[in-house]
Design a protein around this nucleic acid. Structure first.
Lengths: 206, 206
DNA sequence: GTCTATAAATAGATAGAC
DNA sequence: GTCTATCTATTTATAGAC
């Protein structure tokens, strides 16, 4: 009796294209709960109460499922960035910094971030939708950076790189259990946001 | 014929405590080459040309091997921090910033960083040597931070957190293939160092 | 201290029934 | 579109020989 086997009868629960979307959604849940190491097509299927063969009707192999997850992650994340900027108000600096917090919250709750979206293996698939979603994600971030930092394009690119690295680092440390004092996801997200502010200040005041 | 099976005859090649150290070393190589997802006790054994049962004479299970790797990683990394600080000269700011570059180079070449050292699963082992090595690592970093930033202990703690997050983020992005334009490890290390400088400037000038 | 052999899980993937 | 059954490969871990 494995963890996901407490399944109900499976009569006609998925039809048309529903299982495809359900597989992607269940992949997010699995990633968020158990991390990328525990991810497997079989586990995703079990969690949905379908056979382990069913996913292969919708995705030719594991990597194509991961690419679909990555594409949706990129799309959702770009939206989260825009939402966070809007919620942060009119100050360009705050709009910029808020994306770091949004990133940490997203990775903490959905389990997929830049590492999944830009994974080298998936790049080998040459998935057009994924490449487009990834580019759009970077465009959103670069636009917010440019508005916050009146610096040359080169310096802005470096700033956004630092910003992403810090946010990604905080998200990774939260996931890997680096924080041992019961820090909540929101606490870590606020730290990432603070790092964004500090990086911006350190860049402009240079 | 698997990738590691091109092994030589295995007569009396390891004795006394040699295999233990060799297993740890081979674990680093495997982590650096193929990432944590590809790590397995069996692969490490195969790489050394010993049976897959041999490691279990030295480590009760996979997690204990990982804990030994993590302990050594923490020890080596602390040394790298001190070496990098020394190489950076007398300027406390440069000594501080250099640790980020050292971290990226270490993770890039050895395959293990904060995520391995502070992995939540290994914490459950309550391994004393690992806990001590982890604490010492943080002490080295905090000391360099304190000397570079004349701020309150609370602010210094936040700065070192940002610094670690950025370095860890750059290292993770390098490993996951985020950089697609052929950036070298040294290039990414320099970016991480630059992020450290920017964070320090942003903190002091606040 | 290491080896051979083996057990029990689990994963990726396919064939053919319904 | 999904299921059952199956194949192949891999992993963690143990028992007992040398």
């Amino acid at each position: 009796m494995t963890e996901e086997s407490a399944g109900r009868p499976t009569r006609g629960r998925y039809h048309h294209g529903e299982l495809r979307a359900a597989l992607i959604e269940a992949s997010f849940t699995l990633l968020a709960e158990s991390g990328p190491a525990a991810f497997s097509v079989a586990r995703v299927a079990r969690r949905l109460g379908v056979s382990t063969a069913a996913p292969y009707r919708h995705f030719p192999d594991r990597d194509h499922l991961m690419a679909a997850v990555a594409t949706q992650a990129a799309t959702e994340l770009a939206q989260r960035f825009e939402d966070a900027a809007q919620a942060a108000g009119d100050d360009p600096a705050e709009r910029f910094a808020a994306t770091a917090g949004a990133y940490v919250r997203f990775v903490g709750s959905r389990g997929a971030g830049f590492d999944v979206i830009y994974a080298a293996d998936l790049g080998d698939l040459h998935d057009r939708a994924l490449a487009d979603a990834g580019r759009h994600l970077m465009d959103v971030l670069l636009d917010l950076t440019r508005r916050a930092a009146p610096v040359s394009p080169e310096v802005a690119l470096i700033l956004v790189g630092h910003h992403i690295a810090a946010a990604h680092g905080y998200a990774g440390q939260y996931a890997s259990g680096f924080f041992r004092r019961g820090e909540t996801l929101d606490t870590v997200a606020d730290l990432a946001t603070a790092a964004g502010r500090t990086l911006l200040r350190g860049t402009i005041d240079a």
